[in-house]
């Protein structure tokens, strides 16, 4: 892979991976590489935020490290942890060795002095258990770091990320500051369940992925579910678009459109009709209220999508 791919290469490369994107998305990946900044991706669920990181990883041929955020996520789970049991075990085994080492010392001060010569053996890299963030920094071959659903993590964790995101380094008290061997490409995703802090936003490029327009979504379906006939593809994408116009609790996302296209294909359908849609509506809509609302409007929805 070229080191600094241009916007067109990115878009084509993504397409080869089966990820169809508009110019803005390709541009953001391009800029993130040029400016060495993380990208904060926002948008409704199911528009391919996580997928973007995965695709970037396979496009750049980097390994993907994913950190799923949740309430209560803290340093020891995200950054590193000391291997306590290993430390204990080693001290047990080395107990006898210590006697040999300290042979010939006369008083306590001398013994301690001799021990000091060995440095912090038990607090070295051998005893550290790297968690996703540290792994991403330590990988010399380049990584894509995906910090998923950052809005679910606590405020404290958000602030803790700041050092990592702006300088690509983190501080471990016993070891000092660890710098990235190769700066990872960082994606943060958020579903906007809460407002992220300005400090975090300032350090990121902000990409908003909306629902795609009809043309783009058709192209996506074409790539992802190639066996669907063209006629059906047009119909189903338009149907989903009409569905999004309704006032629904949860609007069907791209992933749901893809699932629906797959299920229609399994049913060997080549055109939408009322029975077919009624029986498969639960693939698209995940709330009982939404399903009943859509069922009521089914006739109009179908009419406008089968034109």
């Amino acid at each position: 892979m070229p080191n600094n791919p241009s916007i067109e290469t990115i878009q084509q490369g993504f397409e080869a991976q089966g990820y169809i994107c508009n110019d803005a998305i390709a541009l953001s990946v391009f800029l993130a590489q040029q400016l060495e900044k993380p990208i904060l991706v926002e948008g409704p669920p199911g528009v391919g935020k996580t997928e973007l990181a995965k695709t970037t990883a396979s496009f750049l041929d980097y390994s993907l490290i994913r950190l799923q955020c949740y309430e209560g996520l803290d340093e020891s789970k995200a950054l590193y942890e000391w291997k306590y049991s290993k430390q204990l075990l080693y001290t047990q085994i080395l107990k006898d060795k210590l006697g040999d080492l300290l042979k010939g010392t006369h008083d306590l001060a001398e013994s301690v002095g001799r021990l000091h010569e060995f440095g912090d053996i038990f607090y070295s890299e051998d005893f550290i258990e790297p968690r996703p963030l540290l792994k991403a920094l330590n990988n010399p071959n380049g990584t894509v770091l995906l910090i998923d659903e950052i809005d679910k993590a606590d405020h404290e964790f958000e602030s803790f990320l700041l050092e990592m995101l702006s300088d690509f380094q983190i501080s471990v008290p016993e070891l000092g500051t660890i710098r990235a061997q190769k700066k990872p490409v960082v994606f943060l995703t958020s579903n906007n369940t809460r407002e992220l802090s300005d400090a975090l936003k300032r350090r990121c490029l902000h990409l908003y992925i909306p629902f795609p327009d009809i043309k783009l979504e058709q192209k996506i379906i074409q790539t992802r579910v190639p066996n669907v006939s063209e006629n059906l593809r047009q119909q189903l994408v338009e149907f989903v678009h009409n569905l999004r116009e309704l006032d629904l609790k949860k609007q069907p996302a791209i992933s749901e459109t893809i699932d629906w296209a797959r299920s229609l294909m399994l049913l060997h359908a080549d055109a939408l009709n009322k029975e077919l849609v009624t029986s498969t509506l639960n693939v698209l809509l995940k709330h009982e209220d939404d399903i009943s609302q859509a069922s009521n409007e089914l006739n109009t929805l179908l009419k406008s999508s089968s034109k």
């Binding site: 110019d23 803005a24 800029l31 040029q34 926002e42 936003k201 990121c204 902000h206």
Partner: peptide
């Protein structure tokens, strides 16, 4: 400014979405 230098001024839409990525941080 860096982004604008990288992208150049030749493509208006590109410049617009590029600057938008850097400057606008919410919907």
């Amino acid at each position: 400014t860096q982004a604008a230098q990288i992208l150049g001024y030749s493509d208006r839409n590109q410049l617009k979405s590029g600057l938008g990525l850097v400057l606008a941080k919410s919907l």
